[in-house]
Design a protein around this nucleic acid. Sequence first.
DNA 1: GCGACAG
DNA 2: ATCTTGTCGC
Length: 230
Amino acid sequence: MAHYQPIHDWTAVTPAEAVALQQQLRSQIRIQPLTEPVRTIAGCDISFNKYEETVYAGIVVLDLETLDTIEEAGVVSTATFPYVPGLLSFREIPSLLEAWQKLTIEPDVVMFDGQGIAHPRRIGIASHGGLFLNRPTFGCAKSVLVGKYEEPAPERGSWSPMTHYRDVIGAALRTKNKVNPVYVSPGHLIDLETAVALTLACDKGYRIPEPTRRAHNLVNALRRGERPAS
DNA sequence: GCGACAG
DNA sequence: ATCTTGTCGC
């Protein structure tokens, strides 16, 4: 039901062509304040068995106010692109879009498990996904791809800017006291401060924010055959 | 030239 | 990402 804009084809794309495509698409990314209030937020993730190309993709939609899950969608698909640092979107987005189509609700904002503009060409999976979904998106990654930062204070909520070639590309954010930070960066149609605020708003006491945590649990359960591919 | 490198 | 048990620290 939920739909998206097929900005370009994903088939028969080589790594070299993928980089060229990113260079062509980056100018379309818009980092700006939100224009609409957020009531629902989605988290997405994929899982797969070692040495296999079968991918289990899923999206979970939560009510931002209560953090209750209001909808989930999962699909079993096949990866057609290898994992290459900097080209993650070409491996994960195709199957995520399949799951997106099964949603009844169109989430107000989407959190990705990876980078937004904190990317060598400023178009990580969250930014690339934002162009297809045409709605606010941001990334919350567990590790750094590019950029430097000063260690933020040990208390939950503290953060320090991440920079890359003089550009502020994201934030190293402490989501829990004395635990490693997560790396937040705007994807499209949102700004850094809002992305940080939304990440903190999705707290349930874990380092990983709820949207991503639930999507992760969903796809792993799907992969282990513990639940039907919605 | 050498190392780093989201998931 | 995935393969896997116990274990150190708050």
